[in-house]
């Protein structure tokens, strides 16, 4: 193990190590702690210049105010409505594609794989004008579908890379024996491959859920009305209205951040395994 295990070090060194972790972690999270603290301050506190002492009054009602006086709840709901179908769709298409790329040899296999991987890295701006025009022309502009379809399509690239790499690790003998027994390819996919994919599906779902949840650029380009706006552009618009009411901006930011953060802490293992696939090979 590197570095040498701290348990082997002397007691003072060990305690110094624990203290160092506490200090570094505090600095690391300092900007966020500032926002947390500000989100429960009263306006009087801020007006009195009490920015960094303990709040005189813990005003959790700032959170309630955000929900009551702004469409924040609507924005959150919009994000959910956009994110869930996009995640499910991208994973479904990519699992099919991943199976083809991992277990079949055919002309164009590598080319298709490179298309998915390369496309996944392009700057959004090179897609922006045509994709936006397509949405305007088809009447999808400023609807959920504009964002759902784009995210579904774009994330299919990353998911196909992921699925292909995962399915490659499944033993071919499994498929061969099913073929010998006369199962067709679609049956093999459905009853042999798919059940084995569960861990990968979970990992991937958690990962792209946060990617799509956090999207800002496409939300800015594709939708504008409050009725469909997701939480990212919603929050950014509210900030303009709140001007310098930092207690509300802070509370709003925390609210917008909670779902992906909660998801990460609950499903950490899946999340990390999704993220680091291929990083240790």
């Amino acid at each position: 193990m590197f570095p040498a295990p701290i348990q082997e070090a002397s007691a003072p060194k060990r305690y110094a190590y624990y203290a160092a972790i506490a200090i570094v972690l505090t600095f690391w999270l300092l900007p966020l702690l500032a926002v947390l603290l500000t989100s429960v301050r009263s306006l009087e506190d801020l007006n009195a210049g009490n920015y960094w002492g303990l709040p005189k009054e813990w005003k959790f009602s700032n959170y309630a105010e955000v929900f009551q006086s702004t469409p924040m709840l609507r924005y959150m709901l919009n994000t959910v409505i956009i994110t869930l179908p996009a995640v499910v769709g991208a994973i479904a298409l990519a699992t099919l594609a991943g199976y083809a790329l991992a277990k079949f040899r055919f002309r164009g296999n590598l080319l298709m794989f490179c298309m998915f991987v390369g496309g996944n890295f392009v700057p959004f701006q090179i897609l922006m004008v045509p994709v936006r025009n397509m949405a305007v022309r088809t009447g999808l502009y400023d609807t959920y579908w504009a964002l759902i379809l784009f995210h579904l399509a774009f994330q299919t690239g990353f998911c196909a890379l992921f699925m292909r790499n995962f399915i490659s690790t499944l033993p071919d003998a499994l498929l061969e024996s099913a073929r010998v027994e006369g199962a067709n390819e679609f049956r093999i996919f459905w009853s042999i491959i798919l059940p084995l994919m569960r861990p990968a599906l979970a990992a991937l779902a958690v990962l792209i859920f946060t990617f799509i949840w956090n999207d800002y650029f496409w939300a800015l380009v594709m939708v504008q009305s409050d009725a469909v706006k997701p939480v990212t552009t919603g929050l950014s618009a509210l900030r303009g209205e709140w001007v310098a009411s930092w207690q509300l901006i802070s509370a709003g930011s925390i609210i917008a951040a909670v779902p992906p953060v909660a998801m990460f802490f609950i499903l950490q293992r899946q999340f990390i395994s999704g993220l680091t696939l291929g990083a240790v090979k």
Binding site: L96, Y99, L101, N109, M134, L149, A160
Partner: peptide
């Protein structure tokens, strides 16, 4: 394999490659 690939390739081409 192309039957398995088709849906993904079609949406990816529409929204990424062609644009």
């Amino acid at each position: 394999p192309w039957i398995f690939l088709a849906p993904a390739v079609i949406v990816f081409a529409t929204y990424v490659v062609i644009p």
